[in-house]
């Protein structure tokens, strides 16, 4: 494990050159409920390169958790495809999916709920190996010790049960469990949202270290902008089931082109940011997913909405290589003053 204070991150914001480990295209998910059909995810496409972290950020109801669940096939998509390496897993059966899961794992938000309280940590970490018939009993035990070491837990942890650990320690166990099968892709659904700042820093550092040593790709779902910015190489911003902007982390933070991205960055105060928001902020609430706005779904709250926005959903367009936006009037100009001060300070 590296001991230097600064880590080199993989190349940022360049167009993806290596063969993607995960390719999602045109993915849609619909729920049928008593109140009607909810279009939770609408035509979402992205690729994930080896060793890369793609952050997915947005507010409640934007579909980021639905996306995470659809990618690991906890939900069935209604349209689109999901490719894991060369395999199309969009409609894979439970049996076919089992093999794919060796390469595709997930860390859930609340390890207290996802780790069986009756099992010891050792058994919980050995379970994925047992399911896939990997190794002998002794080999699995050795692997458990190795996993505990990787996530910074002492070997004695194997004999304990999940409730004996703190929130941060439990999330380490959740991460170790997801890494047990040496997957190529790990979906992380708000893995640090329930943690205190100092513990959050421990987990974020751990994730960065693990990615560097294992070369695993992360799909990182989050709502905290500074956390997503910190861990991601590229970031997709979602609003009401659609990706509205996708770009390299720096490109997106310096030159946010979608008015929603700008409002989001402006609304989230940070200790090293400007002391007051630059704009007036968004008014009103996110519209109900049962009754989606026509055209561009953001037009009801958008400060620059025009007639065309109400009629036509904007298509994704490239602003610069690797930076895409879905807006009829993207701000392709220079850095907005507020963001400039945020970055320079």
């Amino acid at each position: 494990m590296p001991s230097d204070a600064v880590l080199a991150a993989p190349a940022v914001s360049a167009p993806v050159t290596a063969t993607p480990v995960l390719r999602v295209s045109g993915l849609s998910v619909e729920y049928r409920t008593a109140r009607g059909v909810v279009h939770a995810l609408d035509n979402v496409s992205f690729e994930l390169a080896p060793g890369e972290t793609l952050g997915i950020v947005g507010e409640s109801g934007c579909g980021k958790s639905t996306l995470a669940r659809a990618v690991v096939r906890l939900l069935d998509p209604s349209a689109g495809t999901i490719r894991l390496g060369e395999t199309d897993i969009t409609h894979a059966t439970r049996r076919r999916m089992r093999a794919a899961r060796r390469d595709l794992q997930m860390v859930l938000q609340d390890p207290a709920a996802s780790l069986d309280p009756r099992w010891t940590v050792g058994d919980l970490l050995a379970e994925p190996l047992e399911i896939h018939g990997i190794g002998s009993r002794a080999e699995r035990r050795a692997r458990v010790a190795d996993l505990l070491d990787k996530v910074g837990l002492p070997p004695e942890a194997a004999q304990r049960r999940p409730h004996e650990f703190s929130g941060g320690q439990r999330q380490r166990i959740g991460i170790a469990r997801a890494l047990a099968l040496e997957p190529k892709v790990v979906v992380l659904d708000e893995p640090v949202s329930a943690l205190d700042v100092s513990v959050q820093a421990q987990i974020l550092n751990l994730l960065t270290d693990l990615q560097r040593t294992l070369g695993v790709s992360f799909l990182f779902i989050g709502h905290d902008l500074s956390v997503v910015e910190y861990v991601s190489d590229r970031v997709a911003v979602m609003y009401l089931g659609r990706i509205v902007e996708l770009g390299g982390r720096d490109s997106l933070w310096r030159r946010p082109a979608h008015p929603y991205t700008r409002a989001l960055l402006d609304a989230a105060p940070r200790i090293d940011g400007p002391s007051a928001p630059a704009g007036p902020g968004l008014t009103g609430d996110t519209p109900s997913p049962y009754d989606l706005p026509s055209g561009c779904r953001f037009h009801t709250r958008c400060p620059i909405a025009a007639d065309v926005c109400r009629r036509l959903a904007p298509a994704m367009q490239a602003l610069s290589p690797g930076h895409h936006v879905a807006c009829h009037f993207p701000d392709s100009g220079s850095e907005p003053p507020s963001m400039q001060s945020a970055i320079n300070s």
């Binding site: 982390r249 933070w253 940070r270 970055i343």
Partner: peptide, 10 residues
């Protein structure tokens, strides 16, 4: 210091 900063990787 534990707080992720703006442009930490800029």
């Amino acid at each position: 210091a534990a707080q992720p900063r703006a442009g930490a990787g800029a």
